[in-house]
């Protein structure tokens, strides 16, 4: 049912990774992504694989959930791998007509494929172990320095969290409106693109009106509960680093050093 859609893809268990501060995880994800662009050597890939494997193990999330995210990028993966495979110049080891595969091509496309897969799996560990709320809180706190250059960090975070709350409601409402219009003979399926777009008007107008109405209501309710922006606000669940966060940061730094070491020192 539509109500059961969860945004992000949080997997509720109580693992080491789940208990980490979201800022630590954000930093870790960033470190991992940077490292993927630094590595260019089989040894470094082994280190990255080890790092990722231990993160998966620590998260206690079944591997299936991590891999599921790959479905979305299958196409991208195929394209980039084949481009690299067929178009990299170098020593040919296979030739069929004008198609040739080079040794360099195999190496680059393999690295490219692994890089993309790791990127997706790495970031899904983040979203699988962090609730959208924690993520928003983490982002707000981590990006707080942007406040100094007048970026409304709190407001953006609040918007994200409100969006998280209202998207399932609006999805359900869309379903209701569709049914109400279908009962009046509306057809949302047939016709060409232009016709289809035109057929959406009876769906979109009520949806927008309702969304605006909800927005006005919500603004009023927030004001009535003394909301006046981020200033002077306290937190019910303030982010606090624990000892495990310290240890984890240390691991991140060591990991980054190891990967960089392999690349620059050899």
């Amino acid at each position: 049912m539509l109500k059961d859609i969860t945004l992000g893809q949080y997997y509720p268990v109580d693992s080491f990774l789940h208990k980490l501060d979201p800022r630590t995880k954000l930093f870790g994800t960033m470190v991992f992504i940077i490292s993927l662009f630094v590595v260019n050597d089989i040894r470094a890939y082994l280190i990255a694989t080890l790092f990722l494997a231990s993160a998966i193990w620590l998260s206690q999330v079944p591997l299936f959930y991590m891999v599921r995210g790959l479905k979305a990028i299958v196409f991208l993966l195929l394209i980039s791998v084949s481009f690299n495979l067929f178009l990299t110049p170098g020593e040919a080891i296979f030739r069929l007509g004008f198609i040739k595969i080079t040794r360099e091509g195999i190496q680059i496309s393999a690295f490219m494929g692994v890089r993309l897969i790791y990127l997706v799996v790495g970031s899904s560990i983040m979203t699988l172990t962090t609730t959208p709320n924690q993520l928003t809180d983490g982002l707000e706190k981590s990006l707080n320095f942007l406040n100094k250059v007048r970026v409304p960090v709190h407001e953006v975070a609040m918007m994200m969290s409100i969006a998280l709350r209202f998207i399932p409601i609006l999805v359900e409402e869309t379903d209701k409106i569709m049914k109400a219009q279908m009962a009046r003979g509306a057809d949302f399926e047939s016709g060409n693109l232009i016709q289809k777009a035109k057929n959406m008007i009876p769906l979109l107008v009520p949806l927008f009106i309702s969304a605006f109405r909800r927005a006005t209501d919500l603004a009023m309710a927030m004001e009535a509960r003394c909301y006046r922006g981020g200033e002077g606000r306290t937190k019910m669940k303030p982010l606090r680093y624990g000892r495990r966060d310290g240890v984890t940061y240390l691991v991140f730094v060591l990991y980054l050093a190891a990967v960089a070491g392999v690349r620059f020192i050899g």
Binding site: I177, K179, Q181, R184, P202, V205
Partner: peptide, 12 residues
């Protein structure tokens, strides 16, 4: 003919 609960869901 089926009329749903909230007229807001169909008026456009």
């Amino acid at each position: 003919g089926l009329v749903f609960q909230y007229p807001e869901h169909q008026l456009f």
